[in-house]
């Protein structure tokens, strides 16, 4: 094996009853690259990253981390290997506070009276506020419940959490869906910064203007099958646009609106 892959899905299939969500998909993530996953709604992108994250066990095929086969029984095992995910539905609990959500499943602990392990609420609150501030979100009170936050703030919380725990691989499922341009650009900068630190990233987006600048590699999914993986050097931006959901229609529209180009 010449190329250094951190994650590999080899010929993966996943079924939900009669639905074939993934049908023999191969996806290889190089160490330190940003890999964009493109495809129409229902193509199976979320199912693919949930397989990577340990939510789903594949029905067929092999999943390798650092070249070694794994079978994650729960997302916890993926997190333990430094693989963190921003799910499309964000995986936040609205009734819980910002700090409790940030550390959900990975609560920091300290010892009380030298014997009991208790959750370190001070550390949790301080870290959550600090990491959100790095994303441009000001939260003064980490006991604020997530239900009170706006969609964009929640998305930033989920991203900040994944960046904090994603020591090696960061998986982002449409992380900019609820964000304005400025916050989206922040997320793109974060992706760049993660790559600079040697973290490998899988990035799902519907916006070619976001995918093209940060992506090193593009994989196109269609109806549960992979239509191939392309290096950035091998494709132009409008070829990437062609691959994306509604890309062809978008170009037609652009042609109609004369003089506009993307």
């Amino acid at each position: 094996m010449d190329i250094d892959y951190i994650l590999q899905l080899e010929d993966i299939s996943k079924y939900f009853g009669s639905v074939i969500a993934l049908n023999g998909v191969t996806l290889r993530l190089k160490r330190g690259e940003v890999h964009c996953l493109l495809g129409d709604n229902g193509a199976g992108k979320s199912t693919l990253i949930k397989t990577l994250a340990g939510v789903h066990l594949p029905d067929k095929g092999e999943y390798l981390v650092d070249g070694r086969p794994v079978r994650f029984q729960s997302p916890r095992e993926a997190l333990d290997l430094g693989i963190a995910t921003v799910y499309q539905d964000l995986a936040l609990v609205p009734l819980m506070s910002v700090a409790r959500n940030f550390f959900m499943g990975r609560e920091p602990r300290r010892k009380l009276l030298g014997s009991f392990h208790v959750m370190d609420h001070e550390l949790a609150a301080g870290t959550a506020i600090e990491k959100l501030a790095e994303m441009g979100i000001k939260v003064r009170d980490a006991s604020q419940v997530v239900g009170t936050m706006s969609g964009g703030e929640r998305q930033c919380l989920a991203i900040a959490r994944a960046i904090h725990f994603g020591a090696r691989v960061l998986i982002l499922d449409e992380p900019t869906a609820a964000l304005g341009v400025k916050q989206s650009v922040n997320v793109l900068k974060l992706i760049n910064r993660a790559r600079a630190k040697g973290i490998s990233v899988i990035f799902i987006t519907h916006n070619v203007n976001y995918a093209y600048p940060v992506g090193d590699t593009f994989t196109l999914l269609n109806r549960g099958k992979s239509l191939g993986t392309f290096a950035k050097s091998a494709v132009a931006k409008d070829e990437v646009l062609d691959m994306m959901a509604g890309g062809a229609e978008m170009k037609e529209l652009m042609a109609d609106l004369e003089g506009v180009s993307i």
Partner: peptide, 23 residues
């Protein structure tokens, strides 16, 4: 005050979110 308490709140609040974050 405990990690288990956070898990109880999480599984009751949204079991899927809790599972996906490793609870």
């Amino acid at each position: 005050r405990t990690r288990q308490g956070n898990w109880i709140l999480a599984v009751g609040g949204d079991a899927t979110a809790a599972k996906n974050t490793g609870v």
